[in-house]
């Protein structure tokens, strides 16, 4: 079983990001579970969401304490939060940042990938919708999620022109991170 933890702020589509991952894994013939760290969060407050992916039915309902992968939608969350707490050795960390990932102060022992999701979103989508870009980057860096399945999920949820632009941005992110792992 692979466990993924997503950190972001309310309004960044963290829960939806988790659902995209779970849906894509399910489309690839796996079992999947996505759920938020339920809160009464308002826009801007820190939010956590979780995804489990397995080749067997998933029964475990606790939160994720030792994730295999981490997705951080807002790099400002690194300040004052132990985002990498419990993270497995060698785990993949995908961060939304336009600067060098070395500046984030993340401990050694993880595979860190930076993707300028906000810039990319404004450029390609025209709106700061970053979760589809982050999920694309995760697919590219992890190799665990099929892009076709992701595209299908995004298209189903956001049919129309905006969704298509998101898919273009998602593909750009997917390609951008190939071989970019620190």
């Amino acid at each position: 079983m692979k466990e993924i933890r997503i950190h972001g702020r309310g309004g960044q589509g963290n829960v939806t990001l988790g659902e995209f991952l779970a849906e894509a894994a399910f489309a690839g013939g796996l079992y999947a579970q996505a759920f938020p760290m339920f809160g009464s969060e308002r826009h801007g407050a820190p939010v956590t969401a979780y995804v489990r992916i397995s080749d067997r039915p998933i029964r475990l309902r606790s939160q994720v304490y030792e994730p295999d992968h981490l997705i951080v939608q807002d790099m400002s969350l690194f300040a004052g939060n132990d985002l990498t707490g419990g993270l497995k050795e060698g785990a993949l960390v995908v961060v939304n940042t336009s600067g060098p990932v070395g500046d984030l102060g993340i401990a050694e022992g993880f595979r860190v990938v930076g993707v300028p999701a906000t810039e990319l979103a404004l450029e390609v989508v025209g709106k700061p919708i970053i979760n589809t870009i982050m999920v694309g980057a995760f697919a590219g860096a992890s190799g665990e999620i099929e892009m076709d399945a992701l595209e299908k999920s995004v298209r189903e949820r956001y049919p129309g022109e905006l969704g298509e632009r998101e898919i273009v941005a998602m593909r750009r992110a997917f390609e951008m991170v190939q071989g970019a792992v620190r």
Binding site: G18, A22, Y31, A32, Q33, A34, F35, I58, R61
Partner: peptide, 12 residues
Amino acid sequence: MDGYILTHATEP
């Protein structure tokens, strides 16, 4: 059904 744990979980 358990609130959030089931109501907000996405699964098959």
